[in-house]
Design a protein around this nucleic acid. Structure first.
Length: 458
RNA sequence: GCCGGGGUGCCCGAGCGGUCUAAGGGGCUGGCCUGGAGAGCCAGUGGGCUUCGUGCCCGCGCGGGUUCAAAUCCCGCCCCCGGCGCCA
């Protein structure tokens, strides 16, 4: 019934300490919490006793009159002073306790590789044939065979054009300079075929997931502070969020945010689980910590479109659903023909919420690197606890927190960059993935098979 | 945005300063009963503390305040309904 993290802290503190060590956090936080927690419980009991005494007196007063009545009122007033002092103490303890508790991470899944940074990520699967420029061969092999997997590849002496130059100069279908002038860096104008491609990618993912039984959702693009705080590790995340001036509203950074809040405060009958949603929305991110990384092009930007998978499950279902969500994402990228690998993110790189996170990383021939396109997380009951989303088992009407999971399906701009690098030909033509044909067909001016380079103006 | 009405437990719905231990229905879960089902009866159906006791505290949209005592009175906020305004 209680939050799994609280249960572990109280009943298996050593397991939680080990969990913190694996995440390169301070295991001393467990004892600190337990001290505050027991003090909080003691204070609460004591306070309850005083309040009880006060309640008893209050109940006697209406039956009395004259001096007796005045004496009781005076006694109640005296008690109230004591209660007030204890309440202040409890409030202090409570906020300290909440602070510590909210900073506690989910228990890691046993398969999560333990290590401080992304060099410890484990490669789970690979798919497709990577085209590797000979100058990148060493890195490619280090990132595949060096991690214990064999991925098909073809070495070439050919030079690939980076996605940013491809978009802006070869195709002439993006303008980040003008966008930078009018909106700032990491914004963009996209034109013509790339816009059709963006829309087609989104509808491709919507079509696939709705056919799998996911319910299609267009969510609010802003959330109140309370809900943002519940869905995210807020202190760590708030710098990434745009806030509406003078209002308690934040632009969403992913449809995960409003989808997680969709059932806040509700109790879901067990037979309704799992609930599967596919959200479509723009995403807004400040990218504050990114400094000058990926400053060119549309790889890392302040706004993009994303189709997001989201699931509410029974605790015993969540790992099966996790496999399904990442499986769906893989199916979508296999359909597009983008070579990729799936990695199990190392413990030290995981956020507090996630018990496990798989990323799908596409191979970028020009960059000579694998880069993240998809992130799939099982946060167990972390969000459910903060959002108070429960389910009820028919047998015995027992309530407990649901598990929540989310995974990217398609993030438009980033997927476009992967297409621009992987499907460019030497003549500058970009081949459109066959799987998108169906979603481009209805539009007379949309590209069908190829996106052609801009005609040289000179 | 303005004016008016309103937010009570899983749902409907009463209460509008002190026997509220939140009436009364309905639903759901468990038990009794039954060959089985129904009816009927009993219990449970918000959160927390607990010395686990027919124990205690808190909870009536959210947050403050007045009072010995607040669902009930006051202030701020959120949301819903109706009307006006504005608008795609």
């Amino acid at each position: 019934m209680p939050w799994s993290v609280l249960k572990a802290l109280r009943e298996n503190p050593d397991v939680m300490k080990d969990n913190l060590r694996k995440r390169f956090m301070d295991p001393g936080l467990v004892d600190e919490f337990l001290n505050v927690d027991s003090e909080w419980r003691r204070t609460q009991t004591e306070l309850n006793k005083l309040r009880h005494k006060h309640n008893v007196i209050s109940a006697q007063i209406p039956k009395l009159s004259g001096g007796e009545r005045d004496a009781k009122i005076a006694e109640a007033r005296e008690l109230l002073k004591e209660i007030g002092e204890l309440e202040a103490r409890l409030k202090e303890l409570d906020s300290r306790r909440k602070e510590l508790l909210n900073g506690m991470p989910s228990l890691l899944h046993e398969s999560v590789p333990v290590g401080p940074d992304e060099t410890h990520n484990a490669v789970v699967r690979v798919w497709g044939k990577a085209v590797v420029q000979s100058k990148h061969l060493k890195e490619f092999l280090a990132e595949t065979e060096g991690k214990g997997v064999r991925m098909e590849y073809e070495v070439t002496e050919r030079e690939f054009v980076g996605h940013a130059d491809m978009l802006e100069y070869v195709l002439g279908l993006g303008n980040t300079l003008k966008a930078g002038e009018v909106s700032g860096s990491r914004f963009y104008y996209l034109f013509d075929d790339i816009v059709w491609l963006d829309i087609a990618l989104i509808t491709y993912a919507m079509d696939y997931l709705t056919s799998k039984g996911f319910r299609l959702v267009l969510p609010p693009y802003m959330l109140k502070g309370d809900f943002m705080r519940a869905v995210e590790e807020f202190e760590a995340f708030k710098d990434a969020l745009y806030k509406i001036d003078g209002e308690d509203l934040y632009l969403i950074a992913t449809a995960e945010h409003p989808l997680a809040a969709l059932h806040a405060g509700e109790t879901i009958p067990e037979e309704d689980l799992p609930l599967l949603y596919v959200g479509v929305s723009p995403c807004f991110r400040k990218e504050a910590g990114a400094a000058n990384r990926d400053i060119k092009g549309i790889f890392r930007v302040h706004q993009f479109h994303k189709v997001e998978q989201f699931a509410y499950t029974l605790p015993e279902q969540s790992w099966d659903v996790f496999d399904m969500l990442i499986g769906n994402a893989e199916e979508l990228y296999r359909g597009l023909g983008i070579p990729h690998r799936v990695v199990n993110i190392a413990s030290g790189e995981l956020n507090l919420r996630a018990a496990m996170k798989y990323d799908l990383e596409a191979w970028y021939p020009a960059q000579g690197r694998f880069r993240e396109l998809v992130s799939c997380s099982n946060v167990l009951d972390w969000q459910a606890y903060k959002l108070n989303v429960k389910f009820v088992r028919r047998k015995g009407m027992v309530k407990d927190f649901v598990h929540m999971l989310s995974s990217t399906a398609i993030a438009s701009t980033r997927t476009i960059t992967a297409i621009l690098e992987n499907f460019q030909r030497e003549d500058g033509v970009v081949e459109v993935p066959k799987a998108l044909r169906k979603y481009l067909e209805p539009y007379r001016k949309a590209p069908k098979d190829f996106i052609h380079p801009a005609r040289k103006s000179s």
